[in-house]
């Protein structure tokens, strides 16, 4: 019987890092409650991940394997997750607020007749109840929330919770479950994934963003910056750049785009509108490059360079390259 249960997301045959973030947070909660931590894995050959999860404190992996789980499908995965939760009766269930988690958590919650405290940046226990702190209004304020019914479901923002090793035995329990395929659902016809290995904005550790100041769709200058930073870095954009058609809408940072919390956010040619700041204001360190000394972005930036980005960024790239190659 696991008191705390996490859902481990598998992508491209690998367990996502967020699973270890959940495991680490779940371990702490389980210890405080005095119970076991379980992890639900749905897919094919998912048992292989049990040792990895055990390293981060998972006592038992519940492996749900069936041909229908070959690729992600909302209805089938939600059925499977709800089934394991129903069977094991955990008090607390944690998912990651990733693209998949956003789709899966509310559907599963609804099957169980509960709601989920979505997108938490921290957890604590209060009288045995899980309290999640989460941004609202895209980060313009925060609030603590609890789920009042059992199981208490919550999701965690990726990249925020710390991972801590805590070796456990790593038991595996196979759950035999086949989804009810008579329930209508969609069929995937095509998956067009960016194979460049680019990290998603919401999971990037460093983001270099370009706004209207980029002057056009040529982003090679800051794409180079991103390349120098390496694979944990990706390029973002302001809405002005997206609306101009320079960048895909999935690159938009802000209140109606993505809310991001990287370690470093470099804003190039972005004025710092309230909507943009809402989406990136929680970044650990902000650098701004803007030719207007009065641009609002400077009031939030830890390091601001007043100047033409087409003159500053080539130098920035040069310095960065020299430093990182040392």
């Amino acid at each position: 019987m696991s008191k705390v249960m996490i859902y481990g997301e598998i992508k491209g045959g690998k367990l996502k890092k967020t699973a270890f973030e959940l495991a680490s947070a779940g371990r702490k909660i389980a210890d405080e409650l005095g119970g076991d931590l379980g992890a639900v894995l749905i897919g094919n050959e998912v048992e292989q991940f049990a040792p990895d999860l055990a390293l981060y404190g998972v006592d038992v992996v519940y492996a749900v394997e069936a041909p229908e789980f070959e690729s992600y499908n909302t209805e089938y995965f939600a059925q499977a997750l709800a089934h394991v939760i129903g069977e094991k009766q955990p008090e607390i269930v944690l998912l990651s607020h990733t693209m998949q988690g956003k789709d899966l958590a509310p559907r599963t919650a609804a099957k169980l007749g509960v709601a989920s405290v979505a997108d938490c940046v921290s957890f604590e226990l209060d009288g045995g109840k899980l309290v999640g702190k989460r941004p609202m209004y895209a980060g313009k304020c925060f609030a603590t929330w609890t789920a009042t019914q059992s199981p208490q479901m919550a999701s965690a923002r990726p990249n925020v919770l710390e991972t801590t090793e805590n070796q456990k035995e790593g038991k595996v329990e196979k759950i035999s479950f086949s989804p009810d395929t008579s329930r209508p659902t969609y069929a995937t016809q095509n998956l067009n994934l960016d194979t460049s290995g680019k990290v998603d904005l919401t999971e990037a550790e460093i983001i270099v963003s370009g706004g209207r100041g980029m002057g056009g769709e040529d982003y090679s200058l800051i794409e180079e910056t991103a390349a120098i930073f390496g694979p944990t870095c990706t390029v973002g954009a302001s809405r002005a750049a997206v609306d101009a058609g320079w960048r895909p809408h999935s690159d938009q940072v802000g209140q109606t785009g993505k809310t991001v919390t990287p370690n470093l956010y470099v804003a190039c040619g972005i004025s710092g509108s309230i909507q943009h700041l809402a989406g990136m204001g929680s970044s650990k360190v902000i650098v701004a490059v803007n030719k207007d000394p009065e641009a609002p972005i400077f009031s939030k930036a830890d390091y601001g360079i007043v100047g033409d980005l087409f003159k500053v960024m080539p130098e920035f790239n040069k310095e960065l390259k020299a430093l990182l190659e040392e």
């Binding site: 709601a115 405290v117 309290v131 941004p135 609202m136 980060g139 313009k140 304020c141 925060f142 609030a143 603590t144 929330w145 609890t146 789920a147 009042t148 204001g281 929680s282 902000i286 000394p293 400077f298 009031s299 939030k300 930036a301 830890d302 390091y303 601001g304 360079i305 007043v306």
Partner: peptide, 17 residues
């Protein structure tokens, strides 16, 4: 779901320019 305490994010200070 029940909300408890609302708070503002830590105020960001302008850094070096």
């Amino acid at each position: 779901l029940e909300s408890h305490v609302y708070s503002m994010p830590p105020e960001r200070q302008a850094g070096k320019k």
